[in-house]
Each structure stands twice: as C-alpha cells, then as structure tokens.
Simulated scan of single mutants.
Amino acid sequence: MFPQTERLSLRRFRPEDAPALAAYRSDPAVARYQSWDHPLPVEAAEALVRSYAAGDPGEPGWFQYAVELKSEGALVGDVGVCLHENRMQAEIGFTLAPGRQGHGYATEAIGAVLRELFEERGVHRVSAECDARNLASARLLERVGFQREGLRPEFTWLKGEWTDDLLFGLLAERWRALTP
C-alpha cells in the first residue's frame, strides 16, 4: 500500500521526520500558496508527524505520505491523499522541499500515488486544486495527466487576500490511456 519508485519511497511518517518537515514547511516560498503559516516550529511539526503517522491510507479522509529520497534516506516532501467515503474518488495535494524541486521528484511521487490509486485501489477519479498563481504546481498536474476543469475566481481567503483556485481532474480511463 506504500508506493515506491526507483528513486523514492513513499511511506508513513516517522518521528525523525519532524525537523525536515519543519524546515521545508517553514520556507516562505513553499508556504506561499499553502494553507499553513510559516515558520512551522519543530514542536508543531512533531505533532503533525504524530497525526500523519496515525492515519490509514485505506480509510476515507486525508493520509499524508512522506516522500523519502532512497539514496540519502532523506525526507524531501509529502503527498496527501484524501480518499472519498465511496473509495472511488480521491483528491491529492503535494509539497516538496525547495532544494529538491526541479529534479522530477514531485512528478515521480505523484505518478506513483496515482498508479497505486488507479491500478491497485480501482479509484475512478482523482482531483486536485491549486492557487492560480502557482504555475509550477499547475504545470506539474498537467504533466502527470490532469486536465484543467475550472477556475473559481476569488474563492479562497488565504493569508489576508482572496485567491483564485484552479481545479483539475484525472479519470482512470485517461490515466490508462496515458500510461504505457
């Protein structure tokens, strides 16, 4: 139930992940389009790690995968999956440490999660959304096969301003057509 790639292990969070989680979630550029405030103190990261570790990826609700670079044994990001109560739909979100961006890790991690959702669990549809200003995330979602389905103008009140949300979706049929 925990996806793997040649370079990455997606796994349950462990207590020793808290400092790395605090570091990348404290970066203003990483937090800019996310719902959390920065900096993220290590104590708060420890509580998040405990909460994430207690989750069950097979049950409805959010489960946060730790993304570990195998060659270093280092936490480089996380991918969240919210499984719908019907277990046929899911939503994803992702965060990657700034020094690890631009190496294909997020594309690889999301691809592994999508493969697991569509091929192992039989999910019919996966959705995602992002701040419309977050062009890198929008491009990443499109690169892995998501289609832009909509724009919600001034939909989210985030960090003192109204933001536009881009909506994306990916159906299992499209995933199968795009996957060799």
Rank of each mutant, 00 (worst) to 15 (best):
Q34H: 11
A45D: 01
T107D: 12
Y65S: 03
Y65M: 04
Q4E: 14
G93M: 05
D17N: 10
A106D: 05
T5Y: 03
G99V: 02
D131R: 05
A29N: 11
R7Y: 01
G58I: 08
P57D: 01
P41G: 03
A31K: 06
W175V: 10
R12N: 13
T179S: 14
A54D: 10
R32K: 13
R125G: 04
M88V: 09
A128K: 00
G61V: 02
H103P: 02
E173R: 13
D78T: 12
Q34V: 05
D165T: 15
P3E: 09
E173K: 02
P15Q: 12
L158Q: 12
G122P: 07
L151H: 13
L8T: 01
I110D: 11
R87T: 10
A132W: 06
D17L: 00
L114R: 05
L48W: 15
A45G: 06
R7M: 11
E173G: 05
G111K: 09
W162A: 13
P60V: 08
W175T: 11
E116H: 13
S51T: 14
Q147I: 14
M1P: 13
G169I: 06
E149P: 03
E142P: 02
N86R: 11
A18F: 10
Q4R: 07
A106F: 09
R11D: 11
L8D: 00
W36G: 08
W175Y: 15
V81H: 03
S26M: 06
M1N: 07
T156H: 14
R139T: 13
